[in-house]
């Protein structure tokens, strides 16, 4: 941890979905050696931000940089991205998927990934379509976390799994994470991941609501990040409800 690199930088990052704002002039700077919790209610722009950084969403304005580069071919070998969906073919087996990653990513540690599969008690030759949602999520985490990337982007990595598996997945994340990289976890289940976070970024309707060191935020607010989250957003949600404006942009629809 002798270097201190800025892994992610965004300036006035803006993205609209047909007029509806998903990100609104977002300025962020994230350094290496940090596990960052990206939290906010549904529709606050978490997924959109991760998509842009991963290079699968081009139509934005403002700047987004990964290690000083615009997301593109050069950054793709440095970024390990887990989207909030099943990105593998149904007919593949975990072994097929490991082969694919080993072929395309030079930073993929196939041996360690295989061990993690076994630790997750997954059958390397079982087809993905015969697996439960949680099992498939574990396969994906195994692929994503066993790359030696500089930036990990995990979109809701624990939402679909039972508490015991959550524990395993978080362990997998901690086990694989190294200090010269930056790891962003987006979630609305802050309670479960709170102890593993260094920093927290609260997004609200595409804008930065609050960001800071997790311990400092806990000290300042005198409670957990989870409680802070609730106090930040619940009052607001209730107010919107009272105003009868549930269709306020950013609160409904797209994650």
């Amino acid at each position: 941890m002798d270097r201190d690199d800025i892994i992610v930088r965004t300036q006035k990052l803006t993205k609209h979905y047909r007029g509806r704002p998903a990100l609104e002039e977002l300025d962020l700077e994230l350094k290496n050696g940090r596990i960052i919790g990206l939290v906010g209610p549904n529709g606050s722009g978490k997924t959109t931000l991760l998509k842009i950084l991963a290079g699968v969403l081009a139509d934005y304005s403002g700047t987004a940089e990964v290690l000083g580069m615009r997301p593109g071919l050069e950054t793709k070998s440095l970024v390990s991205y887990m989207p909030d969906c099943s990105f593998l073919e149904d007919r593949m087996t975990p072994n097929d998927a490991l082969d694919l990653f080993a072929d395309f990513y030079s930073d993929f540690d196939r041996k360690r990934a295989y061990e993690m599969l076994l630790a997750f008690r997954l059958e390397p030759t079982q087809r993905l379509r015969d697996m439960s949602k949680g099992m498939r999520e574990k396969v994906q985490i195994t692929l994503i976390m066993n790359r030696a990337a500089r930036l990990y982007l995990l979109d809701e990595p624990i939402s679909g799994v039972d508490p015991a598996s959550r524990q395993l997945i978080l362990e997998g994340i901690l086990r694989s994470y190294s200090s010269d990289s930056c790891l962003i976890i987006s979630t609305h289940l802050i309670h479960d991941i709170e102890p593993v976070l260094d920093e927290v970024v609260f997004l609200d309707r595409g804008q930065l609501r609050l960001a800071g060191n997790a311990e400092d935020l806990r000290a300042e607010s005198g409670g957990s990040i989870d409680q802070l989250f609730r106090s930040l957003f619940q009052a607001e949600a209730a107010r919107n409800w009272e105003l009868g404006a549930p269709e306020r942009p950013g609160f409904v629809g797209r994650r």
Partner: peptide, 11 residues
């Protein structure tokens, strides 16, 4: 230790 306690390594 981070793994054992399930917390962030910096913590």
């Amino acid at each position: 230790l981070a793994l054992e306690y399930g917390v962030n390594p910096n913590t």
